[in-house]
């Protein structure tokens, strides 16, 4: 029911319910406060902008993952796609002028995503299987094209991109701005556009959608294609940050993206999830790594903590649905 925040807070047990309902933001705030208390370095602009730079790539593919998950699907190929497309971009930027290289990379990303979309929507393949296959194909192709080693940017266009990716505007890293713009776009499309309405409808009841005259196949196809295009955008960003495209990039990123979307309260059955909460999920995951790094916790215990936080967040959502 649409209650205002004030009404929610004043109803019996309201504060607790409010916390549970908005648990993602709650966890985020607690983590920020905790981080600020525990480390002096946390609230420095250097650290914060590092944090944002680190999450932007995964953040962008998480938005793609969100729209796929909203339809009830999953896209396991995005991590490998980032690798293949980063290599592709490195080759293209060394060959063509910059705008053309960017455009081509995104078009190729869209096309690769379309393959998954075609298999899922028109060949009725299980999303898990179709994108699993594409995951290994993309990774393999990445290594083939790169001949096993990273490809460094050599042209003026490439240097311009790496400048862009490592600098800030008004104190915010440029690549984070790209990420935030994508989040805002997704928010608008999901909330105020028919596109969002339809993919959520498909995710919550595919058969009812079909019998309501919705072009179910078209939209299922589109979400994978868009996810591919977003993987391309993420690839351009991560390649530009390091000035090279490597087939080792984006390793296991699909899992982080899924985790971010789930921490953001989305349902893997589809039909439930928002862009702003996915953003929170991305930031929460980023914050955890960041603070553990500041505390000099080695990377193996970090993985354990990350997993524990995912479980905690999802358990909290269980309370929400009760």
């Amino acid at each position: 029911m649409a209650l205002t925040i004030k009404e929610q807070l004043s109803s019996p047990g309201g504060f607790l319910k409010f916390l549970i309902k908005h648990n993602t933001i709650f966890i985020f705030i607690v983590l920020v406060l905790f981080s600020a208390l525990i480390s002096d370095v946390f609230f420095t602009s250097v650290n914060l902008s590092n944090l944002l730079k680190q999450v932007s790539g995964i953040g962008i593919i998480s938005i793609g993952m969100l729209i796929v998950i909203l339809t009830g699907g999953i896209d396991l190929s995005v991590g490998s796609m980032v690798a293949l497309l980063a290599v592709t971009f490195a080759i293209l930027v060394n060959t063509f002028i910059l705008p053309l290289a960017i455009l081509l990379t995104i078009v190729i990303g869209f096309s690769l995503g379309s393959v998954a979309g075609y298999l899922v929507a028109f060949q009725k393949m299980a999303p898990f299987i179709a994108t699993l296959a594409l995951m290994t194909i993309a990774r393999g192709l990445g290594f083939i094209y790169a001949k096993g080693s990273p490809i460094t940017f050599t042209t003026y266009g490439g240097l311009y991109m790496s400048d862009f990716a490592n600098n800030s505007t008004l104190g915010i890293p440029n690549i984070a701005i790209v990420f935030f713009l994508i989040v805002i776009c997704a928010m608008v499309m999901l909330r105020y556009n028919v596109f969002g309405r339809l993919i959520i409808a498909i995710g919550s009841n595919e058969e009812a959608s079909r019998l309501s005259g919705i072009k179910v196949n078209k939209y299922k196809f589109l979400v994978y294609a868009i996810s591919g295009a977003l993987a391309a955008t993420a690839a351009i960003i991560v390649a530009s940050r390091t000035n090279l495209g490597s087939p080792n990039m984006g390793m296991a990123w699909e899992l982080d993206a899924i985790a971010a979307v789930v921490i953001g309260g989305a349902s893997l059955n589809g039909g439930k999830g928002t862009a702003i909460n996915t953003l929170m999920g991305v930031l929460i995951l980023g914050l955890i790594s960041n603070i553990l790094n500041l505390l000099n916790v080695p990377s193996y215990p970090q993985q354990v903590v990350k997993g524990a936080i995912i479980i905690f967040a999802v358990l909290l959502q269980k309370f929400e649905s009760k």
């Binding site: 959520i200 409808a201 919550s204 009841n205 058969e207 009812a208 959608s209 019998l211 039909g271 439930k272």
Partner: peptide, 9 residues
Amino acid sequence: KEEGVFLPL
């Protein structure tokens, strides 16, 4: 329930 309405919406 299965084909007519979207229960969670």
